[in-house]
Simulated assay, not measured.
Amino acid sequence: MPRGLRNNNPLNIRRSKSKWLGEVDSLNGKRDTAFCQFSSLTYGYRACAKLLQTYQIKYKLYVLDKIIGRWAPPKENNTRAYADRVAKQMTKELGEPISVASLLDICKDKATLRALIVSMHLVECGQLPTAHEREAINQALTML
Results as ranks from 00 to 15, higher is better:
121 H>R: 09
41 L>F: 11
56 Q>A: 04
79 T>Y: 04
25 D>M: 13
33 T>F: 14
117 I>P: 01
37 Q>M: 05
47 A>D: 06
37 Q>H: 02
93 E>V: 04
84 D>Q: 15
121 H>N: 10
32 D>L: 05
112 T>P: 07
130 T>E: 09
138 N>P: 01
102 S>I: 08
97 P>Y: 09
105 D>C: 10
96 E>G: 03
90 M>L: 11
97 P>D: 11
91 T>S: 15
134 R>C: 11
37 Q>R: 08
138 N>D: 15
81 A>E: 13
21 L>I: 07
94 L>R: 03
111 A>F: 00
110 K>A: 00
26 S>A: 13
80 R>V: 14
71 W>F: 11
88 K>N: 09
92 K>M: 12
107 C>I: 15
39 S>F: 10
68 I>K: 08
104 L>I: 11
137 I>K: 05
42 T>K: 14
34 A>T: 15
16 S>F: 08
36 C>G: 07
33 T>K: 05
65 D>Y: 11
96 E>N: 04
66 K>W: 06
119 S>C: 06
125 C>G: 02
25 D>H: 07
19 K>R: 14
20 W>H: 13
87 A>R: 07
64 L>R: 06
29 G>H: 05
46 R>A: 09
70 R>T: 10
99 S>Y: 11
63 V>A: 03
70 R>Y: 04
25 D>T: 04
43 Y>K: 00
28 N>Q: 15
108 K>V: 13
138 N>S: 12
50 K>E: 10
102 S>C: 02
71 W>G: 00
110 K>S: 05
62 Y>A: 04
40 S>N: 13
56 Q>L: 07
67 I>G: 01
110 K>D: 10
123 V>S: 03
65 D>P: 00
44 G>R: 09
114 R>E: 13
82 Y>V: 07
46 R>W: 12
80 R>Q: 14
78 N>S: 15
87 A>V: 00
83 A>W: 01
110 K>L: 15
41 L>W: 09
99 S>C: 11
113 L>Y: 10
43 Y>A: 01
110 K>T: 14
65 D>I: 04
67 I>M: 01
60 K>F: 06
63 V>E: 08
57 I>C: 02
120 M>L: 15
119 S>E: 06
31 R>L: 03
127 Q>P: 00
100 V>Y: 04
106 I>V: 13
55 Y>P: 01
14 R>N: 05
92 K>W: 09
58 K>W: 06
123 V>M: 11
